[in-house]
Each structure stands twice: as C-alpha cells, then as structure tokens.
Amino acid sequence: MSNIPKNLRYTPSHEWVKQDDDVLTIGITDHAQCMLGDLVYVELPEVDSQFQHGQECAVVESVKAAADIYCPIGGEVIEVNEAALGNPQLINEDPYGKGWLFRLRPFETPATILLNAEEYSKQVASEAH
C-alpha cells in the first residue's frame, strides 16, 4: 500500500497539495510515481504563469508513460523545483519532500474540491480492481 500522508490534500488525478499560509505546494503522490515507474523527465510551468483549475501545467515522463499534471487550484506559479528538473529521480525517491513540483499562490481558497487522505485512499483502492 502506498504512502498517503494525513496532513495533505489530494486530487483524483493523483496530485497532492500542501497549504502553508497563502502558498500551495504541489507534487504527485507516491501511488502515482509508483505507477509511472522511474521518471526520466519533468516539465514544469514558468514562474509567474497563471493556470485555471484543472488546466494542464506540467508533465512527468517515465520510459514507458507520460502523465500530464493538472493544476489542482487556479493560481499563479511562484516557484518551481529546479532540483527535480535536473534530477527527476527525486520524485520517485521522495515524492512528498524533495520531489515537490511547484508552488502556487491560489486565486481562490482550496477548500472543498480537494480530497482528504481517507477519500484519496479509497479512490486508489478502487482503481486497483
């Protein structure tokens, strides 16, 4: 069973979101990195670019698959993880820590559209069948 920390929020498309004051940090879940396999490439949004909720804003690639990252909340990108760009393996090794993808200043309050850890666990379990 993959690691799903209780203190984070999630999307059905396997992104995680962490809120610190008015800044959100976004990455992909342990389950997602496990399904994709060893990542070889990451494409991240440009700082200052703006995205609507659900818009494609980044790509992660393994040798056999490529996955789009959908912006979990509308907002403006304020920082991207340069270390992950240079070394995508970080996302496999530490998806909730050193493998974060980008930080966002949201236009709206994250609130209800995101899943909590329990809801996300259920979704992952249901996908296994």
Binding site: G37, D38, V40, Y41, S62, V63, P88, Q89
Partner: peptide, 10 residues
Amino acid sequence: RRLDEVKAAR
C-alpha cells in the same frame, strides 16, 4: 541482457 532504458533516457 535486458537493457537499462531509464539510464538511456536520463
């Protein structure tokens, strides 16, 4: 033998 495709791409 089986080849390291991850290394090839990275």
